[in-house]
Write a protein that binds this DNA or RNA. Structure first.
Lengths: 148, 148
DNA sequence: GTATGTGCAAATCATTTGCATTCTC
DNA sequence: GAGAATGCAAATGATTTGCACATAC
């Protein structure tokens, strides 16, 4: 069974890129949890584990991870992008609270049908989708708060 | 029939905010086309029309427009956010080409059912959604290009 | 050996903030 | 007239780039 490291190594080879220790470290760290991540978080996780990889390298490696199909951009919040795993994870959608920022995940298989329809209609080679539903969560519900 | 200007004026009044000429100019400019926009584009459109409104004011007024329900964040690309109209527009989803960046719009009424289901299941007060399908468009299809 | 990758420091770009001035209510 | 809004200039924060050195192939 192929691991994410295998997938990435193959991707690098196919594309004439090099298999460096930093790249392996980053892939391992990203897939060591099931959670979403952002650059800063990832950098700190690496630092705490005494893995020395610079922020710059993270920025440079992320596009490769996306292109290789291991991860994708998930949502943009607090001025920066958040990423999520694709490899080894079922696709899921996000439910975001406009007030407290909480993010829930849910599964929505019916989108597959939408993809198929769209693909045919627009002659698109569909690679994926992102569905985000936003509103007020059960805690913030009814408050309907205004920002300052 | 209420215009976007009316809606915004009411919103301002209800929230104890002021109805300034800059705010009116911005709303008018945004709704003068049916297109998506970003801050820089909007700033330049205003400038070309000899409407003097600073970039800072645009940044400050956009959150009000979102809160008032006139516009919403649409997608994040090229390092900045793009916005789209809600008022006077049927909701639509986006189809984005990973290669050339082209964005097509399509209607997908079935998402309403998804919203209702989610709303009930998670006790969420749903305010809207964003669905983006990405892949290679008919022009870029088959190329499956790699970035540099 | 060569070209690619890394990491530092500096640069860039979008967005935010401090503050004096202007204007709506 | 008081509090809010504007616009400038400066600050901030994320991301990118130039460059010297290191290293995978």
């Amino acid at each position: 069974m192929k691991t994410e490291i295998d997938v990435f190594r193959e991707y690098l080879k196919e594309n004439g890129r090099r298999n460096t220790p930093e790249r392996k470290i980053i892939v391992e760290e990203i897939f060591s949890t099931h959670d979403h991540f952002d650059v800063d978080e990832l950098y700190n996780r690496l630092k705490n584990n005494k893995k020395n990889v610079s922020r710059v390298s993270i920025y440079r490696i992320i596009p490769l991870l996306i292109d290789s199909g291991l991860i994708q951009e998930s949502y943009f919040e607090d001025g920066h992008c958040h990423y999520e795993h694709i490899f080894g994870h079922q696709h899921h959608c996000h439910l975001r609270c406009i007030n407290c920022g909480k993010i829930l995940e849910f599964r929505e298989p019916s989108i597959t049908a939408v993809e198929a329809r769209i693909s045919k209609k627009y002659n698109f080679e569909v690679k994926g989708h992102k569905l985000e539903v936003f509103g007020y969560c059960s805690d913030c519900n009814g408050t309907n708060p205004k920002f300052a």
